[in-house]
Each structure stands twice: as C-alpha cells, then as structure tokens.
C-alpha cells in the first residue's frame, strides 16, 4: 500500500512553484439541508431502553461500506404506492411508524417515536435457531423525502440504507436502497443466507408499508448489483466486534446467571430470555 501525505503534510504553494493560486472557495457554510444531517459522532452512546437488549452498540464506531470486509452490494427494493399519496406523506408515515412495518419477531427501538438525525436505534433481529442478534443503527440523514440509517461496528453489514419516495409519472414509488459489505469474514461466509433473509425482510416490510399507504396490491421489485467483487482483507479483524457471536455469548451468560440464581434460591424467574 502506498502512503500518501495527509493534509498536514502537504507542501505550501510557494514550495511547489505554483503561480497565482486558484483557491477553491469553500461551499456555503450552512447548506439548506444542514439540519437533515446528524452531527458528527466518534462513538455511539445510546440510552438503554425497554423492550430491546441494547447490547453491542455503546462505544462502537460507525462503519460504512468503506470499512466493511466482504463484496460491496447495492440492493434496491421498490414498491409502487400508487397515485393516492405524495412522496413526502409516504416518508412521513414511514418515519413515524418505521418498526410497525417490520416482520414479527424483530424489534426496533428509537429514543423517540420519529426517526431523527443523530438518533441511535437499538435492534433485536431474529437470525434463526431462536437466537436474536442485538445491534443498532444510527440515523445519518432525514429529510422530507428520504432518510438514511448507517450501521455500527459489529452489525451484519457495514454500510447504510436509504429509504426514499419520489414521483414517477402519476405514481409514488417508495424505495429502500442499501449499499453495504458484509462486516467481517464470518458474515461474508453467511452472505448467501443473509441475502435471502434480507430480501424476505424488506419484501415483508414494503408490502406492509404499501398496504398502509393504500396501495391496492403492493408488489415489491428487488434488484441486486455487486458494486465491488473484491474483499477487503485489511478489515478481517472486524470479527472482534461481531454482534452475532457476542449476542450468542451474552444469551448463554444470561442463561447461566439465571440458572445459578434459581439453583441457589435467589429469586430466578425461570422464564426464557425474551430479549
């Protein structure tokens, strides 16, 4: 890998023999969508919330497609919501009721009821075998016609997903578009299964959303493009943060703790872990 000088190491203009500098005037300090973006964060610090386990998020950095391990994919799920609803209205409903359209068994908990830039949502995702993967997402961007969620370290995917709506002729097209890599080598091995599960997840979600928006018979189109077929081996160590492994270990530790308590008569409930 070639090292390139960073901004602080660049030689001044005089040293490199430039003539009259063609300085770039920085763009407007306050662009019109400045409030649509989250403020910069180095590490996520969510509050604990009822209804989700809330592990594997605190202290994690965000991880975009640049920081992932596996092949880079762009997946698009599109649904025609018909002419009866404006794009902004469709997005407003989706933002306010985001988790209500999810398939049963998965949980999404935000600090407030709407999706707002800078929020950290905590997730419990059903991954099969009775196991739930605890992770989160960060609300990177939200405006009247779109919003974007970005993943933290340890999530199945390193990337973001943008939900948007736009007019196409008379109709409003609602779309979820993800740009991501598998977060680490283990997730990459599981990608054939994860693709299938993700497709089922968003198919069910968009169908439920379409019904709520008044579409007569919502049909979801799915397209998948491999944007980069190379794996990024320098990010193989992301596996240290793998939320699936950690969720399994956390569930086992919880069960052991409950077993010890009930064995010593210290008030264990004996109930299964519902988180």
């Amino acid at each position: 890998m070639t090292d390139t000088p960073g901004p602080d190491e660049a030689a001044p203009a005089e040293q490199i023999g430039l003539g009259a500098p063609e300085a770039a005037a920085p763009a407007s300090a306050h662009p019109r969508n400045a409030r649509s973006w989250a403020h910069k964060v180095d590490r996520l610090q969510p509050d604990l919330r009822e209804g989700v386990r809330g592990t594997n998020v605190a202290g994690r950095r965000l991880a975009g497609p640049v920081q992932g391990f596996g092949k880079m994919w762009q997946k698009t799920y599109r649904m025609n919501a018909g002419p009866g609803i404006a794009p902004a209205e469709a997005i407003s409903i989706w933002r306010k009721h985001f988790s209500e359209f999810w398939p049963a068994g998965n949980r999404f908990s935000t600090p407030i009821t709407n999706i707002t830039p800078g929020d950290v949502a905590l997730l419990d995702l059903r991954i099969g075998g009775g196991v739930k993967l605890s992770t989160g997402v960060f609300v990177l961007y939200a405006d009247a016609e779109s919003f974007t969620l970005m993943t933290p370290q340890g999530h199945l995917f390193a990337g973001w997903i943008t939900f948007s709506a736009a007019r196409d002729g008379e109709d409003t097209i609602v779309q979820a578009q993800a740009l991501f890599r598998a977060g680490d080598p283990l997730y990459e091995l599981a990608m054939p299964i994860m693709h299938r599960r993700e497709d089922q997840f968003w198919l069910a979600t968009l169908t439920a959303l379409g019904e709520r928006l008044g579409a007569a018979d919502p049909e979801v189109e799915i397209s998948r493009t491999c944007v980069d077929s190379r794996r990024q081996w320098r990010y193989a160590r992301n596996i240290w943060h793998n939320s699936a492994i950690r969720s399994l270990l956390q569930a086992a530790a919880d069960r052991r703790k409950r077993g010890n308590k009930s064995g010593t008569g210290q008030g264990g409930t004996g109930k299964d872990d519902k988180s």
Partner: peptide
C-alpha cells in the same frame, strides 16, 4: 473546497478514510 459542514459529513460517514481531504487546490495538487 469542502465547507466545514460537509467536511464533517465526510468524517461522520468515514469517507475521509478513503478520500483524502485538503484545504486547498494547492495542497491537493502537491
């Protein structure tokens, strides 16, 4: 040529780890 706001967005999305950001054309050219 990025404003302070968009420079922060590059940092937030960690795009700055792959696209080097410079203060000026001269610095980028050098």
């Amino acid at each position: 040529g990025l404003s302070e706001h968009y420079r922060e967005i590059f940092e937030l999305t960690r795009l700055d780890e792959a696209i080097a950001i410079y203060d000026s054309e001269q610095a980028a050219l050098s």
